[in-house]
Computed example of a mutant assay.
Amino acid sequence: MSRLTHIPAPDGVAPATAYTHVVMGTGRFVAVSGQLALDERGDLVGPGDPAAQARQVFENLRRCLAAAGAGFDDVVKLTYYVTDMAYMPAVREARDAFLDPARLPAASAVQVAALVGPAFLMEIEAFAVIPE
């Protein structure tokens, strides 16, 4: 059985505002490669629109997790790669539509110079733990 434990503020560490500092889990590990704002045909969703791209990325993450028998409740870590930190509010809004804001996974956000193509504004990867 998979069990996740969230530790939002370890002793001596400032409280997190949009993630959990530590998430521990037991079970099988699932790694989902960074997802882009591509639909099922491989077409870009939301050119120039960070909110539309974020929604599509989280939908792709949902589908990838489901293929492994997982869901967002099983996610222990998200890594956000954005070409501009100004896109993070749109990312958080999309995230909160898919994840329970009271049980957020650990997370890192990194601004990058570029992604695989100039039209992509973000890429997000996920790590999850599911029952054995």
Results as ranks from 00 to 15, higher is better:
residue 55 R to G: 02
residue 109 A to F: 10
residue 92 R to L: 13
residue 41 R to S: 15
residue 51 A to Y: 06
residue 71 G to V: 09
residue 126 A to W: 01
residue 61 L to H: 01
residue 89 P to I: 09
residue 65 L to C: 01
residue 63 R to W: 00
residue 69 G to W: 02
residue 62 R to E: 07
residue 98 F to Y: 13
residue 74 D to V: 08
residue 6 H to E: 06
residue 14 A to I: 12
residue 31 A to T: 11
residue 71 G to W: 01
residue 52 A to N: 00
residue 109 A to P: 03
residue 115 L to D: 08
residue 14 A to D: 13
residue 95 R to Q: 14
residue 104 L to R: 15
residue 24 M to F: 12
residue 118 P to K: 10
residue 123 E to Y: 03
residue 91 V to Y: 04
residue 49 D to E: 11
residue 117 G to F: 09
residue 56 Q to D: 02
residue 62 R to C: 04
residue 50 P to I: 05
residue 53 Q to A: 04
residue 129 V to I: 15
residue 36 L to W: 08
residue 101 P to T: 12
residue 99 L to C: 13
residue 37 A to Q: 00
residue 103 R to D: 01
residue 22 V to S: 05
residue 14 A to P: 08
residue 69 G to M: 07
residue 106 A to N: 12
residue 120 F to R: 06
residue 112 V to G: 10
residue 5 T to I: 14
residue 65 L to N: 02
residue 52 A to G: 05
residue 98 F to S: 01
residue 48 G to I: 07
residue 12 G to R: 13
residue 15 P to V: 12
residue 125 E to P: 02
residue 112 V to T: 14
residue 123 E to G: 11
residue 35 Q to D: 06
residue 50 P to A: 09
residue 51 A to V: 02
residue 10 P to R: 09
residue 61 L to I: 11
residue 119 A to S: 13
residue 57 V to P: 03
residue 18 A to V: 14
residue 64 C to R: 15
residue 82 V to T: 15
residue 5 T to F: 07
residue 20 T to G: 07
residue 3 R to K: 11
residue 40 E to V: 08
residue 79 T to W: 06
residue 86 A to I: 13
residue 86 A to H: 12
residue 110 V to G: 04
residue 78 L to R: 00
residue 6 H to M: 07
residue 59 E to D: 13
residue 99 L to V: 09
residue 62 R to N: 06
residue 34 G to P: 01
residue 101 P to F: 10
residue 78 L to H: 09
residue 5 T to V: 15
residue 125 E to H: 09
